[in-house]
Structure formats: C-alpha cells, structure tokens
C-alpha cells in the first residue's frame, strides 16, 4: 500500500524523523535554558574580544582546537575545571570543536601572559619546536572595525561608542589575544585550583646531581620558552640569580603566579618533576 503512494510515504517518513528530532533536539532547549544554570560572573564579549572570536572562526582554529573541558581526570588536570553550560550562553556559534590536534583552549585565558601569545601566534615553532600549528604572523594587520557595532547590536551585547573608538589602531592579533585571555576565565577557577596546592615542602633532591639532566630536560621543554634557554629571562624574569628558597620556587612553579602570567605546572608535571626542575634552577644558580 505504502509502496504505491509516494505522497503519503513522504509524509510518513517526515513524521518518523520528526519524533527523534522533537525529543532529542527541540526538547533539550528547555533543559539547557534553565535559569538555574546561569552563571552570574559570565560576561558577554567586549568588542575587541568579539572581533578576536570572529577571526578565530575565520581562520578555522576550531579545526585543531576544542573548547570544552570534560569532567575526566585527563582533561581537568591538563586544561582546568570542567566546562559548565552557563559558560557558553554568549557563544553564537559554539566553538567546542570535534578534534584536538592541538590542546583544548576552553580555559586558556590567564594561562599565559599576553607576550607569550603574541610570540606564539606569530611563530609557534619558536616556542614549541615540534608544534604543527600554522604561523599566524599575518594577523599583525589593522583590525577591520566597520561591522563591529552592528555585530554587538545583533548579539545584544552591551558596549559604548568609546569602546568602538578604542579599537582604532588595534591589530587582528590584538583582538585574538584579547579573546584568548577571556576564554574560560570568567569563573574564578584558577584561584580555587591554586588553594589546594601545598604539601610538605622539602626539596627531596637537594645536592643530588643525578637528576640534573632530567631537570634540565624539563626546563628546556616547559620553561625555556619564557625564561630563556640560559635562564636569562625573556617573557618571564631571569631565574639565573633567583634568591628565593627552594620551597618558594617550588610553590611558584607548582601553583603559578596567575596575576603575573606565570602558569601553574603542578597538574601538568606533578610534584616530583617540579622538584627536579627546581633543583636544576637552584643548581644552575649556585654554579
């Protein structure tokens, strides 16, 4: 019967695909828009950040970078607190991505100082030699702001004419870095994560030269990009003559100095490796 009635067949097929659609695509709006899930600290994008986000979309960064931290140990320890629904309410479109060729960027905001991003975006391999991220030096061109107000209006984001005025002279790279620094940093998760750091603070490797090579290897990979190959300082201060006690250097490396742009390495390296690198720095200095 059906096999002889194309129009009825079409209607029936449409109805069939609409059942799952209603339940798993239409109904969830109600759950996701639940006012209880709103997070007051999460703010809309500023004009500069929004332009940065649009460049992120234009360049297709989402083909290599995701923007959701899953509640799994490997994600949370590597990238930070897991993502919440309320953090994405201003994301049109969402940029969660489907492939992590590079690291997740949901919480990149505040991880590095601005200077790190400028250098990294222009030439990733100069910071991370085996990275396969393309070079984006061409973003050092003037930002086109012709549509900025219209974009802000369309998305109902608050702004003042002064904000638009302030975009004069900015480059696309400025916008991109502003966007990077905003990502995931509205909720104060870094502070919360930092509070939980400290354990017993005695250098287990004091005067132990056997772990120096390992400490140096960690230093070259994790720290040299900011503190220089010879500890001479670059984006971060020189560590060559650091006069802080071992425990303090450990604390800084483990927990970071988020306000000053020094990332926390506790989760990524673990206590043992942090002590080894501390040991290396202190030894280097004693020489």
């Amino acid at each position: 019967m059906l096999e002889k009635k194309p129009i009825i067949f079409l209607l029936l097929a449409t109805a069939t695909i609409l059942i799952g659609t209603m339940i798993t695509m239409v109904a969830p709006f109600k759950w996701i828009n639940d006012p209880k899930l709103k997070i007051a600290e999460v703010k809309p994008y500023t004009p500069l950040q929004l332009e940065g986000r649009d460049i992120y979309i234009r360049e297709g960064c989402n083909n290599c970078h995701t923007q959701t931290v899953r509640p799994l140990l490997a994600d949370v320890e590597r990238y930070g607190d897991y993502s919440k629904v309320g953090e994405f309410v201003y994301d049109q479109p969402f940029l969660w991505g489907s492939r992590r060729t590079g690291p997740d960027l949901a919480r990149i905001g505040g991880k590095y100082p601005d200077a790190w991003h400028y250098k990294h975006m222009a030439d990733p391999q100069s910071m991370v030699p085996r990275s396969n991220m393309p070079k984006y030096a061409f973003l050092q061109r003037p930002l086109d702001t012709a549509l900025t107000s219209r974009k802000m209006k369309a998305l109902h984001f608050p702004y003042t004419p002064a904000d638009i005025e302030a975009l004069k002279g900015k480059t696309e790279l400025d916008a991109m870095v502003a966007y990077m620094q905003k990502l995931g940093s509205d909720i104060p998760w870094r502070k919360a994560a930092q509070a939980a750091v400290i354990g017993e603070l005695k250098n287990p490797y004091q005067e132990d030269k056997t772990v120096l090579a390992e400490g140096k290897a960690i230093y070259d990979k994790e720290c040299a990009q900011c503190h220089g190959k010879e500890l001479q300082g670059e984006i971060g201060p020189s560590l060559a003559d650091i006069d802080k006690p071992d425990a303090e250097v450990f604390r800084i490396t483990y927990g970071g100095l988020p306000a000053g742009g020094m990332p926390a390495f506790g989760d990524a390296l673990g206590k043992d490796k942090v002590w080894k690198v501390v040991n290396y720095i202190k030894y280097h200095q004693r020489r």
Partner: peptide, 15 residues
C-alpha cells in the same frame, strides 16, 4: 558574515 541563531550548548546540540 552571520552568527548562528542558537547559543552555546543549544547550538552544539542542534549542530
């Protein structure tokens, strides 16, 4: 240039 009509987790689910 256009923006998706849906935001965040809604946009993800529709997508």
């Amino acid at each position: 240039k256009s923006y998706s009509a849906y935001a965040g987790a809604n946009d993800a689910n529709v997508q």
